[in-house]
């Protein structure tokens, strides 16, 4: 596995705002054809972000929300589509650098038992790499 994370990631992070509704987030994920969206907050605009925080388009990265989060944390809990999507997020994300070997992403997923990692380049989130990107089924 010689590829770099940059080569296999889904580029151009799909971001949804913390305060956006669950329905809006679902439409964003539908329209972009992605199973996970990065949740951003406007803390950056108020100077609350430290240089350790990750940034997406000048907004601070709050967490990640997936199809599964929408189903088990909203629909299964009878939350309506107008409620904010932010609280459904998974936080404490583990990032990987775009110029890391893909094997590094595999090791991080194993270590932290997660299937998706935000990809970092120049202090910004450049994309997401998922388990499926790293091990696509083939006939080998």
């Amino acid at each position: 596995m010689d590829a770099k994370v940059r080569d296999v990631m889904t580029p151009g992070p799909i971001g949804v705002d913390y305060h956006q509704s669950i329905g809006t987030a679902a439409r964003t994920m539908r329209d972009w054809g992605v199973g996970a969206g990065l949740v951003v907050s406007d803390q950056a605009l108020y100077g609350l972000v430290t240089d350790r925080d990750l940034v997406v388009s000048d907004q601070a990265l709050y967490g990640l929300v997936t199809d599964r989060d929408l189903v088990v944390r909203a629909v299964a809990e009878s939350k309506g589509p107008d409620e904010p999507v932010g609280p459904l997020s998974s936080r404490d994300l583990v990032g990987v650098r775009a110029d890391d070997d893909a094997a590094v992403a595999v090791a991080l997923m194993r270590e932290h038992a997660v299937r998706r990692l935000p990809v970092i380049e120049d202090g910004q989130v450049a994309g997401i790499v998922s388990l499926g990107d790293l091990a696509p089924p083939d006939e080998s």
Binding site: G35, A36, L64, T66, D67, R68, D69, S90, A103, V106, A107, M109, R110, A113, V114, R115, R116, L131, G132, L134, A135, P136, P137, D138, S140
Partner: peptide, 22 residues
């Protein structure tokens, strides 16, 4: 399931199949 089967000795196989999808 298919990714895990691809190489049972690989690191991916150590990710529990029941891990949260994130």
């Amino acid at each position: 399931d298919l990714a895990l089967d691809r190489d049972e000795r690989s690191a991916l196989s150590e990710i529990p199949a029941t891990a949260p999808d994130r």
